[in-house]
Simulated assay, not measured.
Amino acid sequence: MARTPFHLTIFAVAAIAAGSLAPVSGAFAQDTESRMSGLALSGDEPIQIESDLLKINEETSQATFTGNVKVVQGDTLLQAGEMIVNYTKGGGSVSSGSADIREIELYKKVFIQSGTQTATADAGNFNMADEILVLTGEKVVLTDADNVFIGCKLTVQMKNGQAKLDSCGRRVMIQLDPKSRPKK
């Protein structure tokens, strides 16, 4: 698959990444590391973004979507109370869909769904230059069918698919359903 330039279409990667934690073995641990599967840039499907309000500030190179933010691309859905898109000065504009995005910030309850996978968190950040997605909150919950992963911080390195779920001083909880294993 050819790599798509980092424009607004990269937003779908953050949504897909958060919901694609592959099951790991073990019941409880301080941190959990795994590889993320199914990560791909989707430059061939349109992105629909809805919100109650959009403010574009060309001076600060920032677009702020607030109130019931909903982003849809294919079967991927992202919802949040607020989404801030930070883009490079002179790298295009958000209003034309050609912005060179540096970072996407998500606030006020983040919900991501792609197929059977979901993720919820209080906040999220996608650093485009480093290709790192971080979801944080009192309780970051990832589900894939009947498998559940709970921590407080999920870090995904998009370049290599490596994912880490942190406990933040508590314990990571994982519930695996043996029926969800692929049939051989």
Rank of each mutant, 00 (worst) to 15 (best):
N127C: 06
L133K: 03
L133I: 11
G115P: 00
R102E: 10
Q113T: 02
A123N: 11
G115N: 05
K108T: 05
A119G: 06
A129H: 09
T136N: 11
V134N: 03
E131Y: 08
Q117A: 11
G115A: 08
I101E: 09
Q117F: 00
E138H: 12
V134A: 02
M128L: 15
D122H: 05
N127V: 07
A123T: 14
A129D: 15
A123M: 11
T118M: 09
N125T: 08
A119C: 13
E138K: 15
K109G: 05
D100G: 06
N127F: 06
K109V: 02
F111P: 05
D130S: 14
F126E: 06
F111T: 07
I112K: 05
G137A: 10
Y107D: 08
N127E: 10
L106A: 01
Y107K: 13
K109A: 09
I112D: 01
V134R: 01
L135W: 03
S114I: 04
G137D: 04
T116F: 08
E131S: 14
L133W: 00
K108H: 10
A119H: 07
M128T: 11
N125I: 06
Q117G: 12
E103F: 09
T118K: 15
D130G: 09
F111K: 13
G124E: 03
D122Y: 08
L106T: 01
L106K: 02
K108G: 02
I104D: 00
G137L: 07
E131K: 15
N127T: 07
E131F: 04
A119Q: 08
F111Y: 14
L135V: 08
L135N: 03
T136Y: 09
Y107I: 03
I112W: 03
T116S: 13
L106V: 07
L133P: 00
A129M: 09
E138Q: 15
E131M: 12
F126R: 13
E103I: 07
T120V: 13
L133Y: 02
G137I: 08
T116Q: 15
I101C: 07
M128K: 10
R102K: 15
I104Y: 08
L106W: 01
E105Q: 14
Q113M: 09
K109L: 10
Q113I: 06
I112N: 01
N125M: 08
T120E: 14
A121Y: 06
I104M: 12
A121K: 12
G115Y: 02
D122R: 07
E138Y: 10
I101Y: 04
K108L: 10
Q117W: 02
K108N: 11
G124Y: 02
V110F: 04
F111N: 08
L133M: 13
L133G: 00
E105K: 14
G137F: 05
S114L: 04
K109W: 02
V134Q: 03
I104S: 01
L106I: 04
T120M: 12
D122K: 04
A121E: 03
K109R: 15
Q113C: 05
V110E: 01
Y107M: 12
G137H: 04
G124A: 03
E105C: 00
T116G: 07
D122Q: 13
E131T: 12
F111L: 13
E131R: 15
M128A: 10
E103H: 13
K109D: 09
N127A: 12
L133S: 03
Q113S: 10
